[in-house]
């Protein structure tokens, strides 16, 4: 069999294509965007942010990435649990109701 790839959803057409052993490695980053679960969206006020990394540390979904010196929310995956907003020591994050378009 062809080894499954981390970054590519396998394109199996028949039972002959799937690996004999049930294995997979397609990353949920690409395969399972959970952002659609969200009811409240965390919005950071960068003027208040002290860049301590607590929000990054406390995210149960690893959905906050650290770019240069500040947090960036992966809204494609953030489920909106609100832990970042509650734990932020400088109160820089607000949870805002998602507006469905």
């Amino acid at each position: 069999m062809d080894r499954p790839r981390k970054d590519e959803r396998p394109d199996y057409k028949t039972w002959k294509d799937i690996p004999l052993t049930p294995v997979c490695n397609f990353t949920t980053i690409k395969g399972n965007p959970t952002g659609g679960w969200r009811t409240f969206r965390p919005i950071v006020d960068m003027d208040k942010c002290i860049k301590c990394g607590i929000c990054w540390q406390d995210c149960p979904d690893a959905a906050i990435v650290w770019e240069e010196d500040h947090p960036v929310w992966l809204y494609s995956h953030c489920k909106g649990c609100g832990i970042c907003a509650r734990e932020c020591p400088s109160d820089a994050i607000e949870m805002e109701l998602e507006v469905k378009i």
Partner: peptide, 20 residues
């Protein structure tokens, strides 16, 4: 690294693995 035996839905491949 691979994940072995991850949840497979009725719609895709569980039945095929049993056929295999």
């Amino acid at each position: 690294p691979l994940s072995f035996g991850t949840l497979a839905f009725p719609s895709s491949w569980y039945m095929e693995w049993r056929y295999k």
